[in-house]
Design a protein around this nucleic acid. Structure first.
Lengths: 343, 343
DNA sequence: GTTAGCACTCAACTCTTAGGAGTGCTAACA
DNA sequence: TGTTAGCACTCCTAAGAGTTGAGTGCTAAC
């Protein structure tokens, strides 16, 4: 059996209707509210075919039909590309120029959640491959040394090291020079054991301090291992009865709180994106890398804040989410983030 | 009418039983499962009195009784002080010595949530009154100056300032000395406009840079304005049917996600604590400063990480939470945090 | 002051019923 | 051959009736 034009139209009508109402949709509804001018009986025949093809399914006999994951997939893949979206006006006001990236991200998550009524997440830009740009030790106290490491993209990381014996200013200057000349411009992969022991040798009695600093550098570069993820609008899931029952809600809420699980989503999106796919990914039902979201759909997008720092935005909602609107909104948002950092 | 010893015992029995089961408790239950040796009829009379006194209430005629807020309050205030708790063994292993305070706090929240089955929150130590300890400017790029500010308690804050014309190393050294001599040891309140303009005058053409640095200092000190709060176990609320209905759950989840609301709780706890009250606060029902928690009980405690840096821990659960256990756990935890930072 | 007994209340559960939405199938029509 | 009308059938849902059981309040007796 083939999926002809009429079947596609009917499928589209079913999905549209289901997105709106959340109720299984019957043949009579389709017959009445489309311009196909077909009787409900004909629609029934077609629907029967569509079910056989796996695009829709019946929750139980004598209920209407609801889209299957495969149906949603088709909808998202083909029907959507027909018309490039009339752009959803984003409340631009809310995104003021903010120096602090994390503040900005939180705000983006919130605005998105407010305007879509879905749950949202956003990951801070990953900086995995960045290089050391600047290292500075300073004496804060007789026994405390402040280490500051700046990596490319101006991500700053610092820590305080405790030293047993007081260091002279001169010694600190020397160490500063040593560290900067040795490590500057290197990424984490490039700093190997040989280099470290050579540096330790040069540092003489302060070799311990050197290890401390190296650790700090390593920390700074792999800061994204415990990736920062901001979420908002988790309570929106209660808007959708199919997600609001206790078991599912509890699992989802948990996923949102323990950001570790969300990072799978981020990683998956980033790797998909790297492999040349579209910047916007749609995961429907079981396609998601996060188990607890198997009853949801997730739309993710990759954004870039210049200098190759990439982050991920995700919108999590019911399978019957308004794909049109969500994808439109994400596109707008991405171009705005882009514009923001072009400045 | 007076609350005699026997009434107290019956009230206690009612509350205990309700805490366990979550179901309204009837006279017969009390008659059977206490050592009072009274018939259910007598208990009924007493219960009727207790209801008149406002300690218990009936959800509807012909249901058992449940404790009122007033009843819980009495229970927490008096019954609990009788026996100082046999200390709940905390999974000490989980609290490893962690350099990073925020990591530690996250872990504490999680452990608490796991071991109590309630939702938990923990606020990072406030550093409002701390003083500037160290300021350092360094040139990262020809046009980028890194500012590092360390305040007491070793909280470090940094930002990158953009400058139009390149500064010489010498100039930076001069600015460093100027800033450190002027600002060292001052708290935010003590840095006034007069000082700032005096410093600007001394900085000459680099007065703009000075304002930048001052801003950074201000940021560092009032970092707690957007207070860091970590939460865990929000999904535990689904364990308690009386909180798990959609409306309440949605509100609670939202409160947990938008940490702003929780900060009211933190502030209230801190101010109560400052006014000499006990270190552990119990908010029952309407007593809470956070509207959305009016169907919950909240137990909060203040902890101290040395040097006067105080934070708050909160446990949020149903009114029928196991007050005994929660308070015991909090006490243990606080002494452990104490020990941790005595080291 | 305590207790036994009894009538009464009310939520919760079960069972039944009716209604309605929707399907699948068949036969007739263009 | 595709489309349609008609009809029997399924199954969910809501509403109502009846039953059960826990629990109360009151009274009278000990």
């Amino acid at each position: 059996m083939q999926l002809d034009e009429r079947k596609k139209k009917i499928l589209q009508a079913i999905i549209r209707n289901y997105l709106e109402t959340g109720e299984p949709v019957g043949s009579r509804t389709i017959s009445k509210y489309t311009d196909l001018n077909l009787s409900s009986a004909t629609i029934r025949n077609e629907m029967s075919d569509l079910e056989e093809l796996g695009y829709i399914l019946q929750p139980h006999t004598s209920a209407g039909r609801i889209p299957s994951d495969k149906g949603y997939r088709l909808y998202v893949d083909t029907m959507l590309e027909e018309k490039e979206r009339e752009i959803q006006e984003m409340k631009e006001v809310l995104i003021e120029r903010e120096e602090k990236t994390d503040q900005l991200l939180k705000q983006v998550a919130r605005v998105l959640a407010d305007s879509t009524n879905y749950a949202t997440m956003i990951s801070a830009p990953a900086i995995r491959k960045n290089k050391v740009k600047f290292i500075q030790l300073s004496k804060v106290d007789p026994h405390q040394i402040l280490t500051v490491v700046v990596v490319e993209g101006n991500v700053i990381k610092n820590s305080i090291l405790h030293v047993e014996e007081e260091l002279t200013e001169e010694m600190i200057l020397k160490l500063n020079i040593l560290l900067n000349t040795q490590l500057n411009g290197l990424s984490l992969d490039e700093i190997n054991l040989g280099m470290i022991s050579a540096m330790k040798a040069q540092a003489g009695i302060h070799s311990e301090l050197v290890s401390g600093v190296i650790d700090a550098v390593a920390d700074a570069i792999k800061a994204d291992e415990d990736m920062q993820i901001y979420t908002s609008g988790a309570n929106n899931i209660f808007r959708y009865p199919e997600l609001a029952d206790q078991k599912k809600a509890s699992e989802l809420i948990n996923t949102f709180e323990e950001k570790e699980l969300l990072s799978q989503l981020v990683n998956d999106t980033l790797s998909e994106e790297e492999s040349g796919k579209n910047a916007i990914q749609v995961y429907i039902g079981d396609e998601t890398p996060v188990q607890s979201m198997k009853d949801c759909s997730v739309v993710t997008a990759t954004y870039e804040l210049g200098e190759g720092m990439k982050g991920t935005i995700g919108i999590i909602g019911p399978k019957r989410m308004d794909y049109d609107k969500v994808i439109g909104t994400l596109k707008t948002l991405m171009s705005q983030l882009d514009a923001l950092y072009k400045k």
